[in-house]
Structure formats: structure tokens, C-alpha cells
Design a protein around this nucleic acid. Structure first.
Lengths: 217, 217
DNA sequence: CAAAAAAATGACTAAGTGGTCAGGAAATTG
DNA sequence: CAATTTCCTGACCACTTAGTCATTTTTTTG
């Protein structure tokens, strides 16, 4: 059959995944410049030349890994409409983002480093999909405000603040761990989520859904 | 006379300052690993060897610069007591931190990178002064809560959220600029400060001081 | 099973890095 | 003004790094 010659390559696809995972771990820990291809190779348990065989260059691997990561940035909030409940929608969005920080802290850190350095490889993404997404969400929030369903706030800044707080738990985990004297466990994330949902929703004049009211203390 | 031999050295002190400023700019832009001593030398308009003359090593320069930066972390909030007004005190703290993000974005970025990388050079600071500072502030917030002057919130998380939001404007400026289509000017920071103060204070059941209510829109 | 394609890899290279060192210039000081 | 200390710098070195290349091994396929 005239199959696409290499196709998914099975073996190649598996190695690529292994390399991407190793790269994510290494880049998150040491940054782009601080990570050598050799380190990634060790982590992936493959010879260095093999890495360069699958990805043309260190930069190529980095960009591929960034794309991989950006696909995680989706959440239920993308599908929300102006007919949905503001309190429920925002609370769930915050909870989703907190879950991301707990389950994918490496991805969050890489994203943070990239933006810190001026987002050289994300500027295209920012000025396309990201701006469009933002406009859509801002429109919905403005609609909720116009309907008098929440306090008058600038939706842009509100979203900034939600991102800032949720990502903080992944990006600044070293500081948080030091100050708490212990790492954040699942239960701690749940408590932080409740605290944040209450802060933001109250700040927007919304009633906190029962689910996010304090349970165990 | 038995003067302290070198003392401030005048000439040496001036060069050290020049080098520290150049290092701050370079490290903030390219990170520790991404910055070469040569780059700092170019920025400071001094030969590379001269940098190594004043600071024993690249790492030594980095640590000196970090200390320099950490001294900026002080604010009026350090002096607040339980007799002060919660709304006013918190609003001013938020405003102070926002001003820091506007006037010293490089310092904020360097701090962020350091923490992202596990805060190897700040762990000592975190577990000493920083923990003590935190305990003091938490006690005051708890006192306000006990007095019924603000909503029951966990002070620890509240402070995390204030830091997250305020620092976000420095650390993620690339993303913010892309999404807004223009950089944050002084007036934009003032508006963001108002938005944030209203969000946090409302979220804590506090009345927003008149100063932070919307003025021009 | 032979031919072709894909995968693997050891040896090497060119560029850049942090840091040393010896020698000299400038400033300070008794 | 001589001596001592501080300051300055070009030449150099050991080492790391990303990436190349020629060659071999493995897998796929007609």
C-alpha cells in the first residue's frame, strides 16, 4: 500500500515522546541555556546524537516542546457562553487552572520562563490565537456585567489576576514551600483553590458556589 | 592613620555600582546561565577582567546583585500594626508592590527566575528573615479577622495572591503587552492598581478607600 | 530475502565560556 | 617623593557545548 512512507513511525514517535518528556523536565529545571542536549539525552536514556537526529537542533526541540505545552492551556472556560452562570464558570475556570498548576508545574514554569525572557517564541501565538481567545472571553464577561450579573470590573485585568494567582502556585512553589515549611499536597491545593475562588468571586460581587465553600479546616 | 585600608574606595565603589547595574539588566534579560561575563562587561563599558577583579566570580557577582535586589523588598506594610486600618493598610501595600513592578521590573524578573529555579541562593533568606516577616504579618491579619474587621480568610494565601498579582505585571509584561496591543504606561498601572485593590479588598469584605475608586475611565 | 528507508552512534570540530596570571598604570600615603 | 596599595588589562587556558559527518545497524517493504 502507498502509506505515507514513514507515517507515525511507531518507534520514532515513541522516541520523540520520550525526548519531549525529558526535555520538559530538564528545561523546567535548568532553563533553555542551562540545559545541555547531553542532559536531555541522559534523562531520556538515549545517546545525544539520537536527540539531534529526531529534532534538528536544541532550539527545534525547545519549540516543539513549547507547542506541546501550549496545547495544555485549554479548559472548560473556552466553551463558556454568555448564558452560562458567571459564578460557576469563573469558579470552575479557577479550579481548572489550579489543577494545572498542581499536575503540570513543569509546563507552567517553562511558560513563565519563556514570558519572562520576552516570549521570543510565543509572540506569534500571543498575537494570533491568544488575542482572539481573549477577545471572546472579554466579550462574555462584559455581557455578564451589562446584564448586571456581576460587579463592574475590567475583564482584562480580572483574567490577568486569575492567571497570576493560579500560576503562582506552580511557578513560586520554592518560596511557598519555604514559607509553609512543607510542600503543597493535594489537600492544600484544594484549600488554596477555595480561598482563591472566594477572594475572586466575592471581589466580583458573585455568590460562591457551595462546592467551593470551606469544608474541612 | 589606621584607616580601613580600602574603605569605600570611591573609584572602586563607583565601578562596583556600574557593574551591579549592568549585571541586573543582563541577568534580568537573559538569566544567569544565559548571561556571559563579557556581556556584562560590554554593558558596563569595562573590560571583562575588570569585572572579575571586583567580583571574584560570575556567581559572586550574581549573589551580590541578588542581595542588592532583596533590599528593595521592604515597604510600608512592614511597619503596620493591628491597630492600623486593614483596608488602608492592604490597599497601600498593594499599591506599593504595584509601584515596584512598574519602577523595578528587572528586579522582579530576577527574583522570579531565581524562585523558578528552586531559589538556590534564597533558601537561607526564605527560612530566616522571610519566615519571620511572614509570621508577623500573618499575626496582624489574624488579629484583624478576630476583631471582625475583615472576612475570615487564610492570611497566608491572601499574601500569596497579592504577591502573585502585583508581580505578574512585571514578570509577564511580554504577554500583557501582546494582549493589550500596547505597553503598560503609568496611567495603566494606576488603573490596574485600582482594579486589583477593589478585587482584593472586596474579596476580604473591606471597603475600598476613596483613593482607589475609579477616577478617570 | 534483497533493496531501500529509517534509526542509531562514535569521533570530531568550531565556537564560546569562566577564570587565571603576570605585568604594568594610577592613586594613596607616610 | 618613594613606597605601598589599589586598580587595570591583554594573553592565555581548560573545559563545555551544539552540531556535523561518515558509517553501521535495524526495520520496513516489494
Amino acid at each position: 500500500m502507498a502509506s505515507k512512507s514513514k507515517m507515525d513511525g511507531s518507534i520514532g514517535a515513541k522516541n520523540k515522546q520520550k525526548i519531549l518528556a525529558a526535555a520538559e523536565k530538564a528545561f523546567a529545571t535548568y532553563g533553555f541555556k542551562g540545559t545541555s542536549v547531553q542532559q536531555i539525552a541522559d534523562e531520556a536514556e538515549l545517546p545525544k546524537t539520537n536527540i539531534l537526529y529526531y529534532f534538528k537542533s536544541k532550539q527545534g526541540l525547545y519549540v516543539a516542546m513549547l507547542q506541546d505545552i501550549m496545547s495544555l492551556w485549554n479548559s472548560r472556560f473556552d466553551q463558556v457562553t454568555e448564558d452560562d452562570d458567571p459564578a460557576q464558570s469563573l469558579a470552575d475556570y479557577i479550579a481548572d487552572k489550579m489543577t494545572m498548576s498542581r499536575t503540570h508545574p513543569q509546563a507552567s514554569k517553562i511558560f513563565a520562563m519563556e514570558v519572562l525572557n520576552g516570549a521570543p517564541y510565543l509572540n506569534k501565538f500571543f498575537s494570533n490565537e491568544h488575542v482572539a481567545w481573549m477577545e471572546g472571553r472579554v466579550a462574555i464577561l462584559n455581557s455578564w456585567i451589562a446584564q448586571g450579573r456581576m460587579t463592574v470590573v475590567d475583564p482584562l485585568y480580572l483574567l490577568f489576576h486569575i492567571w497570576a494567582c493560579t500560576q503562582h502556585y506552580a511557578d513560586f512553589s520554592a518560596q511557598i514551600t519555604s514559607l509553609r515549611g512543607k510542600t503543597m499536597k493535594r489537600a492544600d491545593f484544594d484549600e488554596a483553590t477555595r480561598q482563591l475562588v472566594q477572594l475572586i468571586l466575592s471581589g466580583c460581587g458573585l455568590t460562591v458556589p457551595e462546592k467551593y465553600l470551606e469544608s474541612a479546616k
